[in-house]
Design a binder for these strands. Structure first.
Lengths: 165, 165
DNA sequence: CCTTAACTTCACAAAATTCTGAAAGAAGCG
DNA sequence: CGCTTCTTTCAGAATTTTGTGAAGTTAAGG
């Protein structure tokens, strides 16, 4: 399908997917612009786009691209690369990297756990509320461990099914 | 510690925990009022509070309580009970129920999967972008299955460690 | 160095969200 | 049936978030 000289990718088809998938991400809590930029990268053939390409494709200002990309980089969902010998920056979705980011709410969970531990102590480990908090804490600790092993299983499964990315 | 006649719970200590934990939830994406209401329920001794109690404790209007509770109930994070023979409604965090809710982003994931499937088709399963989308789709399908078995392991572990809730 | 291309930061306008008071709506109880 | 108590809905004020244009910053290329 992909011809040598020119891509057959219909921009409108791509855009339809990008906006639709971005909308789902937004619904799940991601801010709008980061969601759109991320979807655009996912739907690109190389997985790499420049700031200009993103701005043009999504019809947004350079400032918006900048903000969205900063957000995504902080969440480790994309990485930024300097194109050698050029002022252009390139943004990339790297398969593995972003699965990990999705499940690596580690920092967030860690803070939940801290807050819960403090709650158990201050409310009293021997009170009903304290016991409820302790159980909740145990749940998060459990999940944290499980997610790690789950990702190991995923990597194995992925390699078997798709080969090395 | 909990005496028969009157609770020793220091309201200020409780409030400190409630606001702190709620703040973490907000940071993770939960709207403010639902987060505060939920934290208050978690920190209550019985796990049940009336609308009036919530309003008083959090210093918010009945309208705010109503909105927050509707949100939480939709997310299956609390359940509402009618106190028999009274106009009062009671809201409850039920241990199991809300762990499940946390991991049951099922509906959300389902929609992601749908969008991705459509993307694979419309961009072409044999294009680089299509392959990337297909792999992403595989990841979610994998996670969906894994989370289910993880929750089974949690229930087993929980029962062993805490006994029947 | 100076020019120029590319990205970033900042202040502000626009848009969306959030919470409240007020009014309306249910449901028990006499 | 009407009174009373509790909850929900609604319109609007206040706050927050978002995206832009414009100025500022960095670094390549002459």
């Amino acid at each position: 399908m992909a011809e040598p000289g020119g891509p057959v990718r219909d921009p409108e088809t791509v855009s339809r997917f990008v906006e639709h998938f971005a909308a789902q991400l937004v619904e799940a809590g991601l801010p709008r612009m980061p969601a759109r930029v991320f979807a655009a990268l996912l739907a690109s053939d190389t997985g790499v786009l420049t700031s200009a390409e993103l701005g043009e494709q999504l019809k947004i200002s350079p400032a918006a691209v900048s903000g969205a990309v900063r957000y995504l980089a902080q969440q480790h969902m994309v990485s930024r690369e300097r194109e050698p010998g050029s002022r252009r920056e390139r943004y990339r979705v790297h398969g593995d990297q972003w699965y990990e980011a999705l499940t690596n709410r580690e920092a967030v969970i860690r803070r939940w756990e801290d807050a819960l531990r403090e709650g158990v102590t201050s409310l009293g480990a021997d009170t009903p509320a304290g016991r409820r908090l302790a159980e909740t804490l145990a749940f998060f600790e459990f999940v944290e461990k499980e997610v790690q092993t789950m990702m190991e299983r995923w990597r194995a499964y992925r390699e078997e099914r798709f080969g090395r990315g």
